[in-house]
């Protein structure tokens, strides 16, 4: 089989350390030459992030992976895969993703004519501020750069004001006060030098975990014999998904150490951002806002059936129930 594979952001560790070795070496080797892979990434193809799964469904390529959140324009119900603040550790995040997996599979089948192969995490999306903050309350009235709809709505519900700034313009925007805070992965923020222009780091997953979904065009999947299907499913779980999750928690701890200097930084020089602890009370209030405002709004966008299904799966795993009419 000749597979053309479109990977996620080529500059990020998930691609460099897990995706690229898996698709270009491990899977072809494990298949004894039955599978041949042609790998590129969506940014190298200059694809709009919202187009990745649309083109996958059309059969333009065979396999694609990117952040599920990029595709919620076509599938609002997909926002339920990655809800902010409900999973604080990698283990909790994996439990959330595993619970959501049947839902996600159905969504990809119906919306994108695709078969879900794996779901792996980007490091959680934390908050960088160039302003004195001591808790979530302090976000009120601040200008915050968010990516993704649910995060933006959540920030608005917390009283912050969402500002659109592209990733590359964030450092300048933080420095000059176009925004006070910005949400991104701790590792991305470290390597892009956001520590130079911000002072405070709030290490809670305010933007969720940014799950990256790997999927295969459904016609392609169905055209393969059962042996090959089993091989791919097994290999991707043990050689890609499990290792990516296994290092996710460590990656977060390391990234925070690198940004704040509390602990060892394996990726380079440690920086000295102020770590902001979120008090339990503060946190409870944010969860309350999430459960009472943000999630019911999502239920309206996605439809009550999806909300009910979410309650039974993800909701049970993380202990949250959305009240629907």
């Amino acid at each position: 089989e000749e597979l053309s594979v479109v990977g996620s952001w080529s500059s990020l560790p998930l691609h460099k350390e897990y995706e690229a070795p898996f698709w270009s070496e491990k899977l072809p080797a494990a298949s004894d030459g039955r599978i041949n892979v042609n790998l590129t990434t969506h940014n190298q193809m200059n694809l709009g992030v919202g187009d990745v799964y649309r083109l996958l469904g059309d059969g333009v390529y065979d396999v694609a992976m990117t952040v599920a959140d990029y595709a919620v324009a076509d599938a609002p119900e997909l926002e339920g895969l990655d809800v902010p603040l409900v999973a604080l550790t990698a283990d909790e995040a994996r439990a959330m993703v595993d619970a959501a997996r049947p839902m996600v599979s159905d969504i990809y089948r119906d919306r994108f004519n695709s078969h879900v192969l794996a779901i792996a995490p980007y490091p959680p999306q934390v908050v960088f501020c160039n302003a004195e903050i001591s808790g979530l309350d302090d976000l009120e009235g601040k200008k915050v750069r968010a990516s993704g709809r649910m995060t933006a709505k959540f920030l608005e519900a917390l009283g912050a004001e969402g500002v659109n700034v592209s990733f590359s313009e964030v450092p300048g925007a933080l420095q000059k006060g176009v925004v006070d805070c910005a949400v991104t992965g701790a590792g991305s923020g470290y390597s892009a030098g956001w520590w130079e222009v911000s002072t405070h780091l709030m290490p809670i997953p305010l933007g969720g975990w940014d799950s990256v979904v790997t999927a295969m065009n459904l016609d392609k999947w169905n055209s393969m014999d059962e042996d090959l299907q089993t091989l791919i499913s097994e290999q991707i779980e043990t050689e890609f998904e499990d290792p990516a999750w296994a290092t996710a928690q460590n990656a977060l701890v390391n990234d925070i150490a690198c940004l704040t200097g509390n602990g060892d930084c394996p990726s380079g020089d440690a920086r000295d951002m102020t770590l902001v602890d979120v008090s339990d009370a503060d946190f409870e209030r944010a969860r309350e806002v999430l459960v009472s405002e943000v999630l019911p709004e999502w239920a309206e966008r996605a439809g009550d059936e999806w909300a009910a299904r979410w309650n039974e799966s993800v909701g049970q795993a993380v202990g949250v129930t959305i009240a629907t009419q």
Binding site: Y70, V72, D74, R149, A152, N164
Partner: peptide, 22 residues
């Protein structure tokens, strides 16, 4: 046309706070 057709079929809305119908 297929771009527009899929947006119509999915009732797609932009992944932003504006939720613009695509």
């Amino acid at each position: 046309w297929p771009v527009l057709a899929r947006s119509l079929a999915n009732g797609s809305r932009a992944n932003t706070p504006l939720e613009t119908p695509l």
